[in-house]
Structure formats: C-alpha cells, structure tokens
Design a protein around this nucleic acid. Structure first.
Lengths: 248, 248
DNA sequence: AGCACTTATTGTTATCTTTACACTAAGCAC
DNA sequence: GTGCTTAGTGTAAAGATAACAATAAGTGCT
C-alpha cells in the first residue's frame, strides 16, 4: 500500500447532559492541575473519552467508556459526529496529559462523539481509571476544555436540541409523576430560552402524550400543581402514524 | 496498555448525490462481477470509499478519496455519521474483494460517511484506481450494495433531506438561470413527493432568495417559463438574521 | 387571622402558515 | 387550428403560533 496510509487511533468521547430540574449540566472529568502560566494554576476539564477496543461496536464502546470513566452504566447514547483534525491533540497541555496515560501519546486520534441526556440526580458519577474525578458542570459555565472538546460540546448541544424536535426524549428525565412546570423547565433549560406557560401547556396537551393524574403536589409553599405521567402508548401511536414533530 | 485495545483502520465513504433535472441519483463504483450462486453472476456496487491518510483532516480526506476513485474533485461534502460494526465487512463477497485491494483485508475498519449533492451533468465520473467504473444510479433503483453501504445510503439520504430544511443547498445544482419548475423538481426529487405548484412558488417568493429575470425560455414546446437566479446576498442576509427555515 | 409570597391554572385574539383546489396562457408539433 | 405540454395565477378554510393578565391555592411570617 502506501507509506502515507498509516493508521490513526480511534477514540470515543461522551457528552453526557444532565438535568436537575433547574439547569442543563454536562459531565466532565478533571484531568488534573496544570500551570496555565507562571502565576496561575487551573484545573482542566475534559469530556470522558478513551480509545475503543478492537472488538466492540461503536455504540457499545460509548457505553463502556462512560462506565469506565465515571461509573455510570447502561446509558444509551447517540452519535453526533466524528472529529479528526490531525492537530486536535497537539497543544502542550494536551500532550503532557497524554504522556501520562497513553503508550503512544503522539499518535493521531480520530474521535467519535456520543451524547445522551439523563436525570442528574439518578447518576452520581464516581471517579475511576485515569480520571481524577467526574463532575457535573452547568453548560453555560463551561470554560476551556481539553483537546477540541469545546467544539464537541457545541455540536452535541446542537444535536440534542435537534433531537428534541422529533422525539420526546426528556420524559425519562422526569420522575414518573411530574408537573407541567417541571416539563417546561426541562425544555427551557435545553433550549436556553423562556417559553410562554399557556402556549406550552396547550401544545403538550394537544400532543396527548401526557396523562393527567388525580394526585397533586403536597407541602409546597404555593398552589400545588397537578401531576402528570408520560403516555407511552399514545407516544408510540403517534410514531407509527409517522408523526415526527415535537417542536416547542 | 491493553491487549484488547488494538487499532481499527479508518476509512471514509462518500455518498455523492446527483440531480439531472429529473431524478435523484447516487454515484456508485462497480467492484466487479461476482457469483451470487452457482447460476447467476451479478455486478456488485459500492460507495466510493477508502482508508484515510495519516496526515489529512477528515473533510480533506473525503474530497481526496472521491477524487481518487471517481476523478471528481473539489466537491465539499458533509459528514453524516460513523459506522463501526465489527462485522460490517465480513460477508464472503466483501472479503473476496478486500483481499484483492488491501494489504490487511481482515482488519476491522471503522468508516466515516460523507455526502454531497451535485449537478449530475457537470460531473462525469471517470473510473480510476481500484474502481472498475463509477456510475450514476437512480436512488430508488439501488439494489444490494457492498458492506453496510445500503445503511450508509439511507442515513445519507436522511441527512440530505434534513439539511435542505435549513439551508438552500440545491441552488448550486441548477444553472445560474433556472425556472421555478426546475427548482420544484429538485425539491420533489430529493423529498420523493409531489408539491403543489402554487404553494411552492408562494413560499419561494416569500423567502425572497430568488430574483426574477427578464429572460424567458426559448424553443420549448409549451409556454416559456421565466428565468430566475439565486439571490445570494438576500440569502446571507437571512442567515445573519438567524433565519434557519427553508422547509417546503 | 391576615398578609406576603410563590407557583398553578386558565382563554382569547390577531397573525401567520399550511393546505387544497382549477382555470387560462403561450409556445410547438402536426 | 387542434392537440399537447408546461407556465402562471388567487382564494378560502383550517391550523399553528404568539402575545397577553387575572385568579387560585398553598406556605411562612407576623
């Protein structure tokens, strides 16, 4: 074959979004302190990611890597893109870190991005492997990340938003019984904009994918809200009818 | 490191769609005859694709590979996904072909899919490298392709359709002066459905991204249509205003 | 008991968008 | 000039979107 045709490595990076009924967060790992200049020392964060195994499918790999690095398992993720700029790992800080964890730190790596969205409170990450710790960071407070991970995060967020226009991902995020206020907060957090309460409720109710329950909130310092549950049967009905629009 | 952590190869496959003012086509390469059973012999087609070079960016690689295999150059393509099922090349026919062109035919390959849409008549593909020939095939006449290429084609088509909802890709496909009938045919071919003429024209005109010209068709056996041209300035204006909806 | 505070709940109207639908016009071929 | 083909045009009904404010039901505090 061809001398130029050597073989980059392949990694998967996971962008795990978490929602806590307030804000949208992203799960990052702390790859340790570094000196940004002679005076300051910062923590640098990165997305959880690692090289894939020879025998695993990409989707499996994404789950496996997330578990290895954060302890969270059985989280299904969606692919959102491949990133292969030959210089994507060439910064000094990146190289220093790679030397500490990889046998071939200089090797080019093409990475494949995966994202998912979970209920933050259900998933308390545990540091493991080479990650010093894994933490939830509000997406609008994320600063400079390792490698090209800021770019990955942006792309993942875009994919998440698109995704929510066609599937009601997000109902897994709420408790089995939730209020429409909570559901609305979820949409507002992900799209980062306010939505009119009345219009929101009308649309949700017209879709028919939530069922009104008898039960109401208790012990809240305001008018108690009615609980609703996700009507999965109705949702699947809609999908079969070719319905594809959950835009809000 | 880890015995399991060997290193798959990386390829890029190109899904090039072409429009000829009638139907949507896809560019395939003929990888030669094979015996599907003891009686029949078929041509098997594949998407143009090959391993990437060590130093090129993915986007560059896609262009380079398309050029190597079909002679078409300077075609910008969009990424639509990575495909890495460990068994995606294990069929007998696939292996036979790989043995004829690769030094490590058994090696696992993860591929990254790219697509684009061009004016068919501008791009007459030339066979080169290991492709016996490259041909335009109408997308709804495509039969069984090599590897997982039918799956890639489906995904690419989906991405193309989504893409057209937010960008007026497609104006590059038409001559500088085109009729609204031609533009409508383009949309109909890609979305594979008929669109009402009056509604189509109204929407296009409201967007304001085409300019009416004085000139009309000549020598046609029916009422000559007025020519229009794409108003690039107006289009960029719309994008800057954050406008993102070219849905038809 | 009463007030402050907070979130829940509800409807209307104006505007815009979408969809469905059918006839006349202009050129060429014969 | 008849037939064929594609171009070009308007309207009405239904649906979707967006903007808008007042009352209700709890808790906490005094």
């Amino acid at each position: 074959m061809n001398g130029k045709r050597l073989n980059p490595h392949i990694s998967i990076d996971c962008v795990l979004f978490g929602f806590d009924f307030e804000k949208l967060h992203v799960l990052l790992i702390d790859r340790g302190r570094y000196h940004s200049d002679f005076l300051h020392e910062s923590i640098q964060y990165a997305l959880p990611g690692d090289l894939i195994y020879m025998v695993e499918d990409l989707d499996e790999g994404a789950m496996r890597i997330l578990k290895d690095l954060t302890g969270l398992h059985n989280i299904f993720m969606e692919q959102f893109g491949a990133f292969g700029n030959p210089n994507r790992m060439n910064s000094e800080a990146d190289q220093r870190w790679l030397r500490s964890i990889r046998s071939e730190p200089e090797e080019r790596v093409v990475t494949i991005g995966y994202f998912s969205l979970v209920k933050m409170t259900d998933y308390v990450p545990v540091a493991s492997s080479f990650a010093k710790s894994a933490v939830w960071v509000p997406v609008n407070e994320v600063t400079e990340l390792a490698f090209d991970h800021n770019e990955l995060l942006e792309k993942a967020l875009g994919s998440l938003r698109e995704h929510m226009q066609t599937r009601p991902i997000g109902f897994n995020l709420l408790p089995p019984k939730f209020t429409l206020g909570q559901l609305q907060k979820l949409y507002e957090a992900i799209h980062d904009r306010e939505i009119d309460k009345r219009n929101f409720r009308r649309k949700i109710m017209k879709l028919g994918i939530v069922k009104e329950l008898e039960e109401k909130q208790k012990g809240v310092a305001h008018k108690p809200a009615r609980f609703f549950s996700f009507d999965k049967g109705r949702y699947e009905e809609l999908l079969e009818e070719g319905f594809q629009n959950f835009k809000l």
